[in-house]
Amino acid sequence: MNAPRFLLAAACLLLASTAHAADTAAWARVLFLHDHNTRVVVVGTSLLGLTAGVVGSFLLLRKRALLGDALAHATLPGIAAAFLLGEAIGLQGKSLPLLLTGAAVTGAIGLGAVLVIRQLTRLKEDAALGIVLSVFFGVGVALLGIVQKTPTGHAAGLESFIYGKTASMLRSDAYLIAGAAAVIAGVCGLFRKELALLCFDADFAASQGWPVRALDVLLMMLAISLTVIGLQAVGLILVIALLVIPSAAARFWTDRLGLMAATAGGLGAAAGYLGAMVSALWPKMPAGAVIVLTAAAFFMLSMLLGPARGILPRAFRRIALAHALTQARRP
């Protein structure tokens, strides 16, 4: 994986050249992770990116990537409702575990709603996704309006969950995210064989007595957990990008599932790392957007250069083959 390393170096150079002389100390401190708080946040976000790449690889191969988007949007009402609930029972409103639990609950309900609509009606999946995504997001926006009217609501900054803001992450938040990401990645690794079988040939798996439905639930739970811990860093609108882009990019590099998941994890981690650093340097810069744009740059490079299915290597192989054929035809 030379491209990610190259990109990282390029981005660092870019950062260095654009920083004002007066800020030199600041960016150097951030870049080399001198500051403990920054270090924790950057490590947490990188681990998040890594895990997103791994989970995303399975989600993509199960052809469920867009389900991840519906579930991400469905977390918003949960965040707002959890905040209101916390206020009502006298808790400190912005307790991250409570908010994320709320997010997970409505995310799971949204996911279930898609499956129920598809099962009970003859609507296709895209219609079900469109309905659930917009309705749940609408409910979330309405609830946020109510939150704004509460005395502490305005200062709570729940909007940062929509677009993501690593700068607002506390050290304890970062620990929570890093720990959860490590657990999710571990579960993926543990069940890699079963998940691969599910993604490749669910009917065959069922014929052998593998609990296909339970494995699907496991995969969806991994996706929900990843989405929920990704809310703070990239925000609910963009978390889908972290699931899809690194894994889609990784597919250009290799024809092996294990390597694909590892490459996706590497690309996701690099995107998370850069995004969190930029956000630490310029707190106004939305980290989610930076992470997604970095991942998109990796994707472009992979699409062009990826040795397994990239455009240029494929064209090169075609030309080489044509050349060999003309050589062979010569007397």
């Binding site: 191969l61 691969a196 993604c199 065959f204 599932l257």
Partner: peptide, 11 residues
């Protein structure tokens, strides 16, 4: 799907 023929047979 990103697997080898052997991977599929091993399933």
């Amino acid at each position: 799907f990103p697997v080898s023929a052997l991977d599929v047979v091993a399933m």
